[in-house]
Design a protein around this nucleic acid. Structure first.
Lengths: 166, 166
DNA sequence: TTGAAAATGAAATTCAATTTCATTTATCGA
DNA sequence: TCGATAAATGAAATTGAATTTCATTTTCAA
């Protein structure tokens, strides 16, 4: 699926990559798990993208680097990356779970076109403030939130036609 | 699943029920579908609750009124109710789709406890304004949004124990 | 009243998510 | 370096909610 960004983020530098690897492998050590080549390949592949990847999409990318890595390992590694904060799940309600990386990433949210499925990031600090305020008001220990806007993107509105992707 | 409300909404009056039935059956007529006893029973059962019901939960409630109504009919009727605006899907990201009724309902959002699964409604007009503003800014024809806050509810924080329901 | 179109519901299917399990690999202490 | 052992891997199986199929029943307009 096509993904557009309103964002100036560059691919990770060598140092950023190293830092993320440190975070990951410290996490593994902390919970008594092992450092493997597969996990490293998966982490690097994941960080090199800016997309909201489903497990299957990441699997296809990783397979280009190492065709012997299985789907299950991708699946489990994504859970590990989410555990240590390097990835987070985004739900666009199209039936598949997607992950995006969170390393050195500005807080952002998504608008999703219900016609062609394109997702566009936007930034709105107010949303984070709302989470905090409302948590306080209702005595919830708020840890995270989801905020997505659905609608029709400019292209689809102009074209007036439906895309194939949903 | 337990559901709590911060809301003063009463069960539907006879007139409100009638009005919702009108909306539903006008919608059916408009799209060339038929009025059936099953659909009426399902609509009434749905409106009588204040919960965020999964298809299966609604199925269990409907079965108490008419054990001959099948799961598939509930499933399809919920889609129809969503089509005409009487129901809307809420995703709490626990793997099942839930619906809540939208008839005579204030705009609201949900906080979900990630420990026991309880969901609490809250009201925040700012969120709707954000949808509008951001849609305009990025040239999206925004039609709806989702906003949920996840965290630990007061009870779970006090009890310090995990509940069974997720 | 009647026939065409739609509805029903049980069963089957789909498909992403998750688990199982036999085999392989990483790590650690001697 | 050499096992021992605990974890990792990945192919295959399983799960479970969502959705579709299809034979039968029901609705409703003429």
């Amino acid at each position: 699926m096509l993904q557009r960004r309103i964002d100036d983020h560059a691919p990770p530098t060598r140092e950023a990559m190293r830092e993320a690897q440190d975070i990951f492998f410290n996490h593994l050590k902390r919970v008594g798990l092992k450092h493997t080549d597969q996990r490293d390949t998966i982490l690097r592949t994941f960080l090199e993208t800016r997309d909201h990847l489903s497990t299957d999409e990441l699997f296809r990318l990783v397979r280009q680097k190492d065709p012997k890595i299985g789907f299950t390992t991708i699946y489990r590694t994504l859970k590990l990356l989410a555990e240590c904060g390097l990835a987070s799940e985004v739900a666009f309600h199209d039936g598949v779970a997607r992950y995006e990386h969170q390393f050195n990433r500005r807080s952002h949210h998504h608008m999703v076109c219900t016609d062609c499925g394109v997702s566009v990031e936007f930034f709105s600090p107010e949303v984070g403030k709302l989470e905090e305020e409302i948590g306080r008001k209702y005595h919830f220990d708020a840890t995270r939130h989801t905020f997505q806007i659905y609608g029709i993107c400019e292209d689809c509105r102009k074209n007036g036609r439906r895309a194939t992707s949903h």
